[in-house]
């Protein structure tokens, strides 16, 4: 894994960039074009919301940007490094060292305390026990759940679970935080708390946040909103400037 090359100075300053990326599922007559040539560039420190109706390709784009999936054609550059040709294991290492994930369904390990859930990415990084504990506690502190560290997901509310998930995503100090409908399972008040938290992480820690949502209320927290329609970027504007 040439993970170090990801540290190389980006050629044009872009943190991540999609160039004419396509993604097809299935074969023959059942072929489905999820992405039909997407060009996208996101710089460090941005807070981007990706919106669009179901089947518009926003989740597919998110999976590719999160190195969970490869585009069928086109290029994906992460800090100027081509990711689209990497193997499964290389993408896993990229996720391990640069990315943090927050999912709609929280995806915490059952019967596992908040602290152990947050520690998990550090275990795979091979961090020693003391450092793991300290970092995990700090991350739980950052999401306001320091006193809940010994509770399991079943003992936490949805909003709390999502905050544990955010703590798990930021415990490694990721370059990018990818959130796939992070408020999809939460009520309005909890959703706003989560969005406040993501905005704060972006503002105070400079973590680039990339979020998929279909709620305009939530997209308003982002600095930039990209709309997907039919596998293409339909509109791309910064909040405040009306196109």
């Amino acid at each position: 894994m040439n993970a170090t090359s990801a540290h190389a100075a980006p050629e044009n300053g872009a943190l991540i960039e999609l160039r004419d990326a396509t993604k097809t599922y299935g074969q023959g007559p059942a072929t489905f074009l999820a992405l039909r040539g997407v060009n996208l560039r996101i710089d460090a420190g941005e807070f981007v919301a990706i919106m669009g109706p179901s089947g518009s390709g926003k989740s597919t784009a998110m999976n590719i940007l999160g190195c969970l999936d490869n585009p069928t054609s086109g290029a994906y550059l992460f800090r100027g490094m081509h990711v689209e040709n990497l193997t499964r294991n290389q993408r896993a290492l990229l996720r391990r060292y640069y990315l943090g994930f927050v999912f709609q369904g929280f995806n915490l390990l059952a019967r596992t305390t908040a602290l152990e859930n947050v520690e998990l990415p550090l275990v795979y990084r091979g961090e020693p026990r003391a450092a793991r504990h300290a970092k995990a506690r700090a991350a739980l502190d950052a999401v306001g759940l320091r006193q809940w560290e010994h509770h399991t997901p079943a003992e936490l509310s949805g909003g709390q679970q999502q905050r544990v998930a955010i703590a798990r995503a930021i415990v490694t100090d990721p370059t990018i935080l990818l959130a796939d409908e992070p408020t999809g399972n939460l009520d309005s008040q909890r959703s706003h708390e989560i969005m406040d938290l993501l905005a704060a992480l972006n503002r105070d820690r400079g973590i680039t946040v990339l979020m998929v949502t279909h709620e305009p209320d939530m997209a308003r927290y982002a600095k930039r909103v990209i709309h997907f329609v039919d596998g293409r970027v339909d509109s791309d504007h910064h909040n405040g400037e009306h196109s």
């Binding site: 969970l68 499964r88 996720r95």
Partner: peptide, 13 residues
């Protein structure tokens, strides 16, 4: 699902 979580956060197969 647990394996999915582990893989997503960067565990190798």
């Amino acid at each position: 699902r647990e394996i999915g979580i582990r893989l997503a956060i960067g565990a190798l197969e």
